[in-house]
Design a protein around this nucleic acid. Structure first.
Lengths: 138, 138
DNA sequence: GATAATTGCTACAGTCACTAGAGCTTCAAG
DNA sequence: CTTGAAGCTCTAGTGACTGTAGCAATTATC
């Protein structure tokens, strides 16, 4: 039986975050000791590792909840799990695309300004004031 | 003199967002009509366009506040403006890096699962359960 | 000029995934 | 048996808005 602190140390998930996941319904409400403290088993360790891993990959809590629900029906088809991951991948790719454009624009703006003159002539400020100086929409 | 709705239509910034920017000190509190409604001038249009442009580039509100303050001292050196933009560019690049790694890992996970079998054998679920199946740390 | 539709006002709650703090109780070690 | 660490609940704060409620003012139509 592990205390919440033990579970935290073993999974790298902070104590308040574990309680938060319980509140969000990602992990079952733990058994309690006589003094009302949470006591965990090995299976909670695995569950929490699953959650942490999914969060590290950027999945949000509803998606994780759904994946957990799915994982509890081993004989069901896995199309839904596949879809969740694929949708997330698509979202990640969109974010990258968007950030790439920003990177481009910022690169261009920064490269025209070496910080060695006055605000009056500063390309950073001018570019922000006048969208016409931009190459792409954003 | 423009109403807040006019200003909104002309800049593409939503009405509540304009009020929010006022509250955050990005735009001066507007003059009011007899009936206590905000009335704006041409200069507010420009200011708001500046803010919107900076937000579109991903700059946060404290950064924008600083840029606005800088822009009001035209003869000061522009090193600070340059630094804000360069720092932001660096942050964008870091985000892209991180998302690239996620993309890679998700790609790998998704490609091993065609959605045509059962949860039991689902690579998406297995990969989330077992970090050892991952190629990189995350 | 009356009425109706739109727009505006303030203030507060909600978003997401936590994180921090207050004020208290329980536990483990010496 | 005492002390300090760890645990408990509850509330509020993060960032940049967005949505809602309940009004007041303005504009358009008749």
């Amino acid at each position: 039986m592990l205390s919440i602190g033990d579970l935290s140390k073993r999974t790298g998930v902070k104590v308040p975050t574990i309680r938060y996941y319980e509140q969000m319904g990602l992990i079952a409400a733990a058994e309690r000791s006589e003094g009302n403290q949470r006591r965990y088993e090995r299976s909670d360790l695995e569950r929490l590792a699953f959650i942490r891993h999914a969060r590290n990959l950027g999945l949000d809590i509803p998606a994780i909840r759904e994946l957990i629900a799915l994982s509890q029906h081993p004989s069901e088809p896995c199309a839904n799990a596949d879809r969740i991951a694929a949708d997330h991948l698509a979202a990640v790719r969109e974010k990258i695309e968007r950030l790439r454009k920003l990177e481009h624009e910022l690169e261009r703006i920064v490269s025209q300004c070496d910080g060695g003159h006055s605000i009056e002539d500063c390309y950073v400020i001018r570019a922000l004031s006048d969208h016409g100086l931009c190459e792409s929409e954003h």
